Computed example of a mutant assay.
Amino acid sequence: MFYLIALVGAILAGAVNTLSGNGSAITLTILMELLGLPANVANGTNRLGVLGNGFAASLGFQRAGRFTVKKEERVEMTRVVVITTLGAVLGIYLSLIISNEAYRAVFRYLLIVMLVVVLVKPKRWLVAPEGRPTLPQWLSIPLYFALGIYGGFIQMGMGVFFLAIMVLVARYEIIQANVIKALVVTAYTLIAVAIFSWRGLIDWPIGLLMAAGQMIGGYLTARFAAQHPKAGLYAYRLLIIVIIAAIVKAFFL
């Protein structure tokens, strides 16, 4: 029964991760509270699901034609992936030597800030900007590098922060921001899985089961998001729900 709940939870997490973010709040809770894995093993095991989700979401977006972008946009997408991945390598290293508790304490309060940002002027999330400006390197490099550090360290909430940066600062349309998020997460999670595996911090049977679930949820949600005309609105609403749920869990559960 526990493994069935884990599979269903993984499918839901895959859908949440693809359309908004913070699906790891579901999977980490299952791994630690339901299945009783130690925090560091849960962190490592969770990366298998994140990798499967990122790969499946990328495939779903690709098959729906969301990778058809201009040459300059491909160059910028590649830059985001590379910089964020470099930051993630540092974050992965920190996750192996520092307790998660300090970062989780900061994460709780960042969620409140994020909820305010998301609710103020919602049109910024729903209207695709015309003539989107390119961020200057002095701003984009530290932003993407910091996102990578956070994602490499704990992963939980990475999608929420990534979308906020890509939509509100870099001015991407929310579904295209999700496309880039899938690529970024897949790239650095490959490295994370290799490192956690090397350190013996992955429970492979459980991890592969949840990876299968997240691949199913990620692929189906990506196909829906890429083709549905109101997908951006649904992504925005889901983002609000996810942040509120994470705040309730962080402060009251």
Rank of each mutant, 00 (worst) to 15 (best):
K121W: 11
S99N: 13
A231T: 01
G148D: 04
I240G: 14
I92M: 09
M210Q: 09
G217N: 00
R74F: 09
N100E: 15
A15V: 10
S58I: 07
R199E: 14
A245L: 15
F67G: 05
E101Y: 10
S24T: 12
A105S: 10
V120S: 10
R79A: 12
A250W: 08
I216K: 07
I11E: 08
G152A: 07
V193P: 04
A211I: 06
E173A: 01
L37Y: 03
A6E: 10
L59S: 03
A39E: 14
G91C: 04
H228A: 07
R108V: 11
E73Y: 12
G21F: 02
G152Q: 05
A182S: 02
P38D: 08
L94N: 11
G52Y: 08
P229S: 08
A250V: 03
G52A: 08
E130H: 13
G151T: 07
R132F: 09
F107P: 06
E76K: 13
R171L: 06
V116A: 07
V50G: 13
F252S: 08
V179H: 05
R79Y: 08
G207N: 04
K70T: 13
L238I: 10
Y188V: 08
I216L: 06
I98M: 10
R66A: 03
P133D: 02
V16N: 02
L135A: 05
G87K: 01
L110T: 14
V50A: 15
Q214T: 01
F61P: 02
V116K: 08
R108H: 13
A15D: 07
T221Y: 14
P142R: 05
Y188S: 05
A235N: 07
V117C: 09
T45G: 00
I195S: 12
I112N: 14
T68I: 12
A105C: 07
A105Y: 11
S99M: 04
A222H: 11
V75R: 10
V16D: 01
F196K: 00
L12K: 07
G52T: 09
R47W: 11
I241Q: 09
I174K: 01
L190C: 14
L163V: 02
Y103F: 15
Q214E: 14
G36Y: 13
I206W: 03
T18W: 08
A231M: 03
V127H: 11
E101G: 10
I165A: 03
